[in-house]
């Protein structure tokens, strides 16, 4: 007869964290980007509350510059699982004059998401936002707590973080504050991909090899699109590529790949020697890029 000893300790930890969120907070939300990490979070939440439905909504901060494949996928998943989805648009924050669109060669709406996110947290009075950030992604994230308190301006005070001992998660906050929750903190990129393979989780098609119009800049492969600034001399090519990480089109670089199914993707990750965030254009700006964005309330 079956026992549970074969189950991944990381999955057990993540399910425990999901349940702590539902128990300790009044208005949690799961921040959903349509990327593999947030898709993994949805599966973990399903597992945590079965046979009941996931007791919180999903929220997508849409930059308006997403891959269309991601948006189609998002809408289908939400419908299949009967979940509530909230969408807030960066375009609205721009129209309201709260943020200014970046211009030029490296312009991206990625950083602008922060304002839209913080406004939405205030609008819905969310007290806990579950996100798919992992500590292995980046040095500043390596110091992030599982329950990470944000003040009423949405800011992260990295020098004054609560110690987290044993399994005990302290979610006590004041009115106006919120907690960012990272259930897959201790997962690596390979852990996520292996989990997607084992669980047979569906993910957007752009994670698999496909033909795409691209151009090259700074040794990275950029998508040719209306949303991405491109100079005249930057030649458009067609290549077989896939994405390792999926964010806004203007900040996500592709990799050359023939991996067209999950098994070959896992194999590729296992052998790969460039870390995942190496394909994130926004982090190349400076060594402290991520930490600065986090202090301002970025995810």
């Amino acid at each position: 007869m079956k026992d549970t000893s074969h189950i991944n300790p990381l999955e057990n930890e993540a399910i425990y964290i999901m349940r702590e969120v539902a128990a300790q907070f009044e208005k949690p939300v799961l921040l959903f980007s349509g990327g593999k990490d947030s898709i993994t979070l949805v599966r973990l939440a399903q597992k945590a509350f079965y046979p009941a439905k996931i007791p919180f909504p999903l929220m997508h901060i849409d930059t308006g510059h997403n891959f269309p494949e991601t948006i189609e996928f998002r809408d289908r998943l939400v419908e299949e699982l009967g979940l509530e989805l909230i969408v807030r648009n960066v375009q609205e924050s721009i129209d309201q004059g709260k943020v200014k669109e970046e211009t030029g060669r490296y312009s991206s709406r990625n950083a602008l998401q922060t304002t839209t996110l913080l406004d939405a947290i205030e609008e819905f009075k969310f007290d806990a936002c579950i996100g798919g950030a992992r500590r292995d992604e980046e040095k500043a994230r390596a110091k992030e707590r599982i329950f990470s308190v944000r003040d009423d301006f949405g800011q992260w005070d990295e020098k004054n973080q609560r110690p987290e001992l044993f399994d005990m998660l302290n979610g006590q906050i004041e009115l106006g504050q919120n907690v960012r929750v990272f259930p897959i903190s201790n997962w690596t990129e390979l852990d996520v991909w292996s989990y997607i393979e084992k669980e047979d989780i569906e993910i957007p098609s752009i994670y698999f090899a496909h033909k795409r119009k691209i151009f090259l800049r700074d040794g990275l492969i950029w998508s040719h699109s209306d949303f991405v600034y491109q100079e005249d001399h930057e030649e458009v090519l067609e290549e077989t590529v896939r994405f390792r990480t999926v964010g806004d089109m203007s900040c996500t670089a592709a990799v050359l790949s023939e991996a067209s199914d999950i098994a070959s993707v896992v194999q590729e990750i296992r052998e790969s020697s460039i870390s995942e965030r190496g394909a994130r254009i926004d982090d190349k700006r400076s060594e402290a890029a991520m930490e600065k964005r986090k202090q301002q309330g970025y995810f």
């Binding site: 007869m1 079956k2 026992d3 549970t4 189950i7 597992k47 079965y50």
Partner: peptide, 19 residues
């Protein structure tokens, strides 16, 4: 019953998140 997600198990081993 011991549930791990939608699966019924005979045993819940230490450190597993069950229902």
């Amino acid at each position: 019953d011991i549930y791990y997600y939608n699966e019924k198990c005979q045993t819940a081993s230490r450190r597993s998140s069950v229902t």
